[in-house]
Design a protein around this nucleic acid. Structure first.
Length: 503
RNA sequence: GGUCCUAUCGUCUAGUGGCCUAGGACGAAGCCCUCUCAAGGCUUAAACACGGGUUCGAAUCCCGUUAGGAUCACCA
């Protein structure tokens, strides 16, 4: 029984795109569902595009999302692989020490070269050294003739190449017959070999191309499922041919569709956030991002109509075969809704902790145990009112800071005159001053009684009090709010309001 | 242009030949609840891209058309 092993293999060239995160999520869920392992491997074989620090950043993003990378190499080949500890880009915060990844391809050049030579020796790959100019001339000629350019062994300009001089190694792709890809998501796809050219396996700088490096590593790591973006679909038959040339077992392939913006084009900056940190900074929680991404292109099916999932539920129910083949459009309104759902499901103290950086950004520094305790008391009142963490500050700032003095107009209740509002305000003050227990329910009872006595509607009186006490028209429930603020603060703010309205 | 992929409400999807006068969710509209705002409850509008087949019967199978998309590098 082979253990399911999946991997996410980004090229560390910058920010991790949300579409890539979804692909990684599908890979992770596939592994976890089967009790298997998930790894990240960095494909940094293009020297021109390498971005230092990006690898680390990507790992941090997985960590933040709660997508854990697996350690415990129980596979000989896996152990033989070099780890991040050998790379200049090693993570130095210690949090990933002891796990066997990320794997970095630039550290493994000798391995790829040996594999390429192995294919040359077997007559399944060959050397050639056409220059970039010669190649583009060939391309131009093909185009002039209306053909699609495709390099084949027979097109070589020189056949005798000194292995000591710069050259590339190309894979000798069979030029007849068919290659069949049995994709988990798309089913069987048949490719005519005649349409496939001979790709470079090893570049003249000694670096491998994706086709070689990825196939070699996936084999050595014991990867069972190659789950990747569907832009790889056209080159999949070449990859299959390479794997076969080595005589290795074929892994399971799954090409997942892209994530598009509202206009049907691939999601990009102009659609809004695309990077994980952007989502985090906009107040989205991990649970919602993962839930949303999972549902983008995947559904439980079998008559089940569940939309809200926890990570354990996702792991239990996820199946690659139920991922749709068509591209999905990223919907921010739906993400917002899910974010609200997951916020509501959190324990109050957990939510309070997550709110901290956002409150600090709004100038509310919860810097003492007392303030934190206060925040935890407040959280249940705003929990079902916010969709994003960024919205919290606007609801609760008056608990921690003085309210702006309400304007004269704000203190006049709906369909009321100034003198009547003032009267209600003064009466309210008396209620607050004399109430035995300054708590939620007693306050509400006392104020409803007051409404009856004044022959005013609750909404009329309550809105005056709300404005006076909080300085806002939209707040958490009034009496709970007042109870938390405390009698002294409430009386002070009512007095302040009375002064304003009297003038 | 060659090759390949995709096509159900605005969006995410259920649906694998009869259970479909196509179900759910988000969003929208309305109502209820209600101290504001939310949350919650109920209701409504809203889709099988088109054309041919196959079949007693097609959203489901086949072909074509159209429309999107991917890919054709010593990038991944």
């Amino acid at each position: 029984m082979t253990i399911v092993r999946t991997r996410f293999a980004p090229s560390p060239t910058g920010e991790l795109h949300i579409g890539g995160v979804r692909t990684a999520l599908f890979s992770w869920l596939t592994a976890k569902h089967a009790g298997g392992q998930f790894f990240v491997r960095f494909e940094d074989t293009d020297q021109d595009r390498y971005s230092a620090g990006s690898a680390r950043n990507i790992i941090e993003q997985f960590k933040w999302l709660g997508i854990e990378l697996d350690g415990g190499p129980d596979h000989k080949a896996l152990q033989a692989m070099k780890t991040n500890e050998d790379t200049p880009d090693a993570l130095d915060d210690g949090s990933y020490r002891g796990i066997p990844g990320p794997f970095v391809q630039s550290q493994r050049l000798d391995i790829y070269k040996a594999h390429a030579e192995q294919l040359v020796a077997a007559g399944k790959a060959y050397r050639c050294n056409e220059s970039a100019e010669e190649l583009s001339a060939m391309r131009a000629e093909a185009q002039a003739q209306g053909r699609t350019f495709m390099f084949k062994k027979s097109a070589r300009l020189r056949t005798e190449i000194d292995p000591a001089t710069p050259h590339v190694i190309r894979f000798d792709m069979p030029s007849s017959g068919q290659t069949v890809l049995d994709d988990m998501i798309r089913g069987k796809i048949v490719f005519e070999n005649a349409n496939l050219g001979d790709d470079v396996l090893l570049k003249s700088d000694g670096f491998p191309t994706y086709a070689l490096a990825a196939m070699v590593d996936d084999h050595l790591m014991g990867v069972t499922h190659i789950i990747r973006s569907d832009e790889w679909l056209p080159s999949a038959p070449k990859h299959i041919a390479i794997i076969k040339a080595f005589g290795w077992d074929l892994p399971i392939f799954a090409h997942v569709p892209t994530v598009n913006g509202e206009d049907g084009k691939k999601l990009s900056k102009r659609h809004g956030a695309t990077g994980i940190w952007q989502f985090r900074d906009q107040g989205y929680v991990q649970e919602a991002i993962i839930n949303f991404l999972a549902m983008l292109g995947w559904a439980v099916g079998d008559g089940e109509e569940q939309n809200v999932f926890t990570v354990p539920e996702l792991i239990q129910k996820f199946s690659l075969s139920r991922v749709g083949a068509s591209p999905a459009v990223f919907s921010f309104p739906k993400l917002d809704w899910l974010n609200g759902v997951h916020i509501r499901q959190m324990p109050a103290d957990d939510l309070a902790q997550r709110l901290l950086p956002f409150l600090a950004q709004a100038g509310l520094h919860i810097d003492s145990a007392e303030k934190l305790a206060l925040l935890v008391r407040i959280v249940p009142y705003i929990q079902e009112r916010i969709k994003k963490l960024t919205e919290a500050a606007g609801f609760i700032d008056f608990f921690f800071a003085d309210v702006a003095t309400p304007s004269h107009d704000m203190l006049i209740g709906p369909k009321m005159e100034q003198h009547l509002s003032l009267h209600a305000l003064k009466a309210s003050r008396e209620v607050c001053a004399n109430l035995a227990a300054f708590e939620d329910t007693p306050l509400e009872q006392a104020f409803r009684k007051l409404c009856d006595e004044l022959k005013l509607k609750p909404n009329q009186v309550f809105s005056i009090i709300r404005n006076a006490v909080t300085g806002k028209t939209v707040t958490p429930p009034l009496f709970g709010t007042m109870a938390i603020l405390g009698r002294d603060t409430v009386l002070a703010r009512l007095d302040n309001a009375i002064t304003v309205l009297s003038s």
